[in-house]
Computed example of a mutant assay.
Amino acid sequence: MTQRNGTAATVRRIVLRAAAVLATTALAAGCGTGDASEGSGPAPTPPADPKATLLAAVPTEQDPAFRFLLQDGTDKFTGVLDPAGEAMDFAIQQQNDDPKFTMGLTFRFIDQDLWLRVKLTGLADVPDSLKLPKRWMAMDRGKLKDESSIPAYQGADPGNTAAVIRTADTVTDKGNGTYTGLADLTDNADVQSTFENVDLKALGEAGKKVPFTAVVGPDGNLTSLTLDVPAAGKQKAMKLVTKYYDYGKAPKIAAPTGDQVQKAPALAYEMFNG
């Protein structure tokens, strides 16, 4: 799953603020339409554009730390993102069938520094070949053959919701903070790489009009975006869900220190280098 930054959403917020200031200034200066001598009042304020309002709700670098959940088909990612510190915890669980066990991976990123923590469950006796420290492991990026495959902090919108919303021709305000629209998952590479578990080729034309529902909280922050992907070919219908929550309540992310961390052993690099 690819992350992109929230630059576009930040610009839209600035544009909306600037437009509001200009509109207020114009009204104060009497720059309305019609003849003032006819006693006409100022022109009514046009309603907010739902798409612009929804994009402005997407988290940006100015937002406080928050938690997130990304459900991409059968994969579920959870974590904490701290835009001010350019930091992120990013966790996923992976099931293995033979032998049967569950592996939990948690990455921590602060700027360019990277740590990894691994938890294995379901194995009665963990063989020496699979034993890894329970502490955070400090990773040397120079020892990773394919660094591009490792998730990294790339902005305040880990679900790439802004890119999805921008593909919609029309967004409808349903009231109570709920918005709906049709997203084009074939529109650009950013959107396609975000939902790599979706067979876009099988979807065909249906991939250009995928229904979504977004919810904005009372504080003006996006809390969820759900895409309802139809069944196509061998692919079952699925929901692609992004949730952002606990704005300002999520813990700050700090570099592990002391007995919380150690250098990553060779096995940690073998897991990713193959």
Rank of each mutant, 00 (worst) to 15 (best):
L54R: 01
P127W: 12
R13T: 13
V171H: 00
Y244V: 07
D128V: 11
D146L: 13
G217D: 00
T186H: 02
A202E: 02
A20W: 11
A138C: 07
V118M: 11
L203E: 01
P251S: 15
Q262N: 07
A189Y: 04
L116D: 04
K119M: 15
T257N: 14
L81I: 06
Q154A: 11
E61H: 06
T121M: 13
E61G: 15
L22E: 02
D128S: 10
V118Y: 07
K76S: 01
I92N: 03
T45L: 09
V171G: 05
P151Q: 12
Y179C: 03
C31G: 12
Q235R: 01
P42G: 02
N188C: 09
K134G: 09
P158Y: 15
G217A: 08
S149G: 01
A52V: 06
Q3T: 05
P64K: 04
M1I: 05
N5I: 13
D199A: 02
R13Y: 12
A65H: 07
G41R: 12
G73M: 05
G220V: 04
Q235L: 05
G233S: 00
V261D: 05
K243V: 04
K234V: 06
D75K: 07
A28F: 09
D63C: 00
A237M: 11
R12M: 07
I165Y: 06
N176G: 08
T170N: 03
G73Y: 05
A43S: 11
